[in-house]
Design a binder for these strands. Sequence first.
DNA 1: CATTAGATCGTCT
DNA 2: GACGATCTAATGA
Length: 196
Amino acid sequence: MSVFEKPATEVAPLLLGGLLIVDDVVLRITEVEAYLGIGQDPGSHAYNRRGPKNNTMFGPPGHLYTYFTYGMHVCSNVVCSPLGEASAVLLRAGEIIDGIEIARMRRLTSRVDADLARGPARLTVAMAIGLDDDGSDLATSRVRLELPDTPAPHETSLRTGVSGPGGTEPFAWRYFIPGDPTVSPYKRWQPKKKTL
DNA sequence: CATTAGATCGTCT
DNA sequence: GACGATCTAATGA
């Protein structure tokens, strides 16, 4: 029974202040979001049914779930809940605390160090995580996760960019370390513009 | 600081 | 055909 066998909403705050380690780059997690499973969370990839796209979310907890979105971005999650149930914690932002020169090379567009991993797709690029890493074990694979000894103080808010029934996100499942410069700005969901 | 548009493609309707 | 757990560059206040 690992800590990851609990629902993502319980695991999420435990990750704050934890470390994500890939080769020589170390990231301190400062912002995450929880997503639940079938029928529980309209914003989740696993809301409707299990399928090829979201299969990893139903896999063993403590593994990595990476997905491709917006035609060009990859985001990283930690799979939670017991095997066969779907929930995951999206890694939204963090602070590079080691290997920062490597991270800078990977993110040439970022002009400030605080922006290196500020946002889920940015974080994934800075850590050189890819779709190939989907499903890998965070305890034994190239991508490692270490939980903090003592949980970091945190706040919660609505999730960013997530639509809900009627356009309103109903769940305050974004967890972040308040005041940290690497936490991404909250953006509420808004409908796409129409091309006249 | 705020808002806008464009990029780009797998999945779903 | 539309849209998404996004990001960047450009433009306006």
